[in-house]
């Protein structure tokens, strides 16, 4: 039984910068939960993704710092070369091995979200050419959280949403532009 809206976790890979931009641009500043994001990108890539996404969003989009307190109205991006994890109310980083060739890993983030937030977690899998995130989304589902997968036909790369749907009986399969309104509605009503 999902009880809504303690945290929104999003995972994306190939095509994710565009997809995240679309979702974040449609989320209002008063979304009552913090957003955490694992977007695959190069280890030493420029740290310019947060401002790019932030310009289009009412949320404050920042790169995560270790042990930073999470606040509603903010979106926290996994820094390149680190896994992003959460505990209740705060972020944590690790430099552990890559998972499925990825660091940040969506599975690592979602697993920590499931453990810390259980039925208050919302997990969203967006476009990507990877299987990362499927196991993590299953963990969120198993812990009672709400699971959303981008409709594969609307994804720039459909492998990641396909993999997630193969692993999880997701609560919602939504076109890209339906995701933000759904999150807003769920958080306002406290349930799907």
């Amino acid at each position: 039984m999902t009880t809504g809206c303690g945290i929104v976790a999003m995972g994306a890979s190939w095509g994710g910068v565009h997809a995240l931009g679309v979702v974040l641009a449609a989320v209002p500043a008063d979304l009552p939960a913090p957003v955490v994001i694992a977007q695959h990108r190069g280890e030493d890539g420029p740290a310019g993704l947060a401002p790019v996404l932030g310009r289009r969003s009412a949320l404050r989009v920042v790169e995560a710092t270790d042990k930073q307190a999470m606040r509603a109205g903010h979106a926290y991006l996994a820094p390149p070369g680190y896994h992003l994890l959460v505990e209740r109310g705060a972020l944590a980083l690790s430099t552990d091995e890559k998972e499925r060739f990825s660091r940040p890993s969506i599975d690592v983030l979602f697993d920590s979200v499931a453990s810390a937030y259980a039925e208050e977690a919302i997990g969203v899998i967006l476009t990507g050419a990877s299987d990362d995130g499927a196991a993590g989304l299953a963990r969120i589902r198993h812990s009672g959280g709400l699971t959303v997968v981008q409709e594969p036909a609307t994804a720039e790369r459909r492998r990641m949403p396909d993999a997630a749907l193969a692993a999880v009986n997701a609560h919602r399969i939504l076109a890209l532009d339906e995701i933000a309104p759904f999150l807003v509605k769920v958080c306002a009503e406290g349930g799907p």
Binding site: K67, L85, V86, E87, A92, S94, D96, V108, D111, S112, S115, A116
Partner: peptide, 9 residues
């Protein structure tokens, strides 16, 4: 130890 990482290991 930081719980999320410790738990994972």
């Amino acid at each position: 130890y930081s719980r999320p990482s410790f738990r994972r290991r």
